[in-house]
Each structure stands twice: as structure tokens, then as C-alpha cells.
Amino acid sequence: MPSPVPAYAPDAAGRLAALSDVTASDRALRRFLHGLPGVDAVGLEARAAGLGTRSIKTTAKAYAIDLAISMIDLTTLEGADTPGKVRALCAKGIQPDPTDRTTPKVAAICVYPDMVATAKEALGDSGIHVASVATAFPAGRTALPVKLADTADAVAAGADEIDMVIDRGAFLSGRYLEVFEEIRAVKQACVRADKSVAHLKVIFENGELATYDNIRRCSWLAMLAGADFIKTSTGKVAVNATPPNTLLMLEAVRDFRATVGVQVGVKPAGGIRTSKDAIKYLVMVNETLGDDWLSPDWFRFGASSLLNDLLMQRQKLSTGRYSGPDYVTVD
């Protein structure tokens, strides 16, 4: 097999075409997705729990903390977001810990589409991406033209990454091709006038998919449709990223790369608040996918309060003194 390519590479479409027969019709797609092996729930949970018991200390911990910081999509998705708050968040993303200039910057700032321009301006040439949720986030309950307009708007404002939500209603009622076509259409909308593209992250909302089998099917569906990243959840429902469902998605991207030769990233989001949790996810990535995915290009954390905890742990490692919330920002 030739070396794997990302989903946004020019020749990715050709590789995906190898599986064009499974996406040729609704029936073929259903047959394919339902033909995926069932998930061993007990085994999956045991494996995820087992990977969470590794002890990561001293230099390895320092490396993991810095890596986790550089993988964060620092997020603010509130109805009360103001341009000032977004600018403050951008400043924090560029220099997370003003008392220690060696702290790495975050990967991206994640905002609503109307804040993209503000974030883009605030980030300037820092190299931090602007990610924007789109397609009627978080419910996704609008007509397709509205979703596409939402996406095109964010892309035109300069978003480097688009986080779309799938239509869970269509997925759960078995209209897989509809979901597939929708992802394809949004991917089309991610192309700018100058032919540059915004990377597409596809949010499943695992908490609403009900079963592990559905998460596996949804992962394959999104990757077949050309997702650059698959993302666990919006962070707006009760169940968000959990170690088992993230592990399941990591296994799906591993199998997808082995089958098609296209590499897809993973982004757990919501509910990851402590350094300990973040390090457990990194262990899981390393053990399931290896080094290839251990970079901000292939693995992200969707988080807001996680960054403060990572910074406090970082301060503890560098000074030997336990830090406290007085020494990080109040977001």
C-alpha cells in the first residue's frame, strides 16, 4: 500500500473511490455499515479502563502536558460570547501561561461562525487555527441549504477548520445515504473561492447515538464521506467524550487507514477537564494508533477548562510547588 494521505490531499478522493460501490446506494451503504463487525462492549470498556491505569511521571508527564496543550482546541461556544471574550481567549491561546514563555501555544480556537472574523483578527500570524462550528450547531436541526450557508459563511470569514454536526435524526432512522450526502455537501462548502480548503471535522454526538455499534458505523460513514477529523460530541449533552467511545473511534481510523490509505484525525470533546484525563487519552492514542497520530494535526482535545488544569500541573512540575486557580485565568 502506498503511504497514507490525509483526507484533504488531492489524491484522497481517488483512494476513497476504491470503496465507491458501498456508497453507491442507500441499500449498499446500509449493507456495508451493518456488515461491520459488532463491538464487544465489555472488551472495549475493559481495554479503555486498562489503558487509563498507566502511570505517567516526571519527564514523560512534562512531555505529555506540553503535547496536550498543543493539541487543545480552546473552545467558547456560549450564547453569551462577546468579541471581547473571544479576543481574550485568543490571547490565552497564543500565550497560555504568561509567567512561562516556554509553554506551547494551543492548536486552534473554536468559536461560533459569527465570531470567526474576530478570532482570525486576534490571532493574526500566530499560526493558531480558527475552528468554527457550523451546520446549526449543536442540534443540526435545519434544512440543508441553511446548513450550507452557515458553513460557507464561516469559511468566507476565514475559518481554517469547520466542525459540523451530523443529522442524528437521519442516522438513527437508518437514512445513512442522506447523512453521507450531507457530509459531502458540507465538505464542498468548505472550499474557498481561491481553492484553499477548510478542514472538516464531523461531530457524531456519541451520547445520542445510543450504541457502540452505531458509533463504529457512524465513524466509517463520516470517513467514507471525506471527513478530515471525526469528533465525539458537541459538549452540549449529558454524555460527551468517554474513554471507550473515543477508543472505538481510534480503532475505526486505524482500520480505515489500513483499508483505504487515508489518515483521519480524532477529536474527543466535552467532559475532559483534568490533566490526568488528558494523559489517559494520549496513552490511548499511542497504544492504539502509535506515533503517527500523536500530533496536533491528527489528534485534538475540544476543551476549555482543561487548559487551566494543564497549566497548573505544568507550574507544579517546573517549580515543585502545587499551584492554584489564582495563578491561571478565569475564563
Partner: peptide, 9 residues
Amino acid sequence: TPLASHQDV
């Protein structure tokens, strides 16, 4: 010792 140096005490 850790309590005395703890920044949040």
C-alpha cells in the same frame, strides 16, 4: 512541607 509551599493555601 507541600502545604507550606502550596500556592492555593
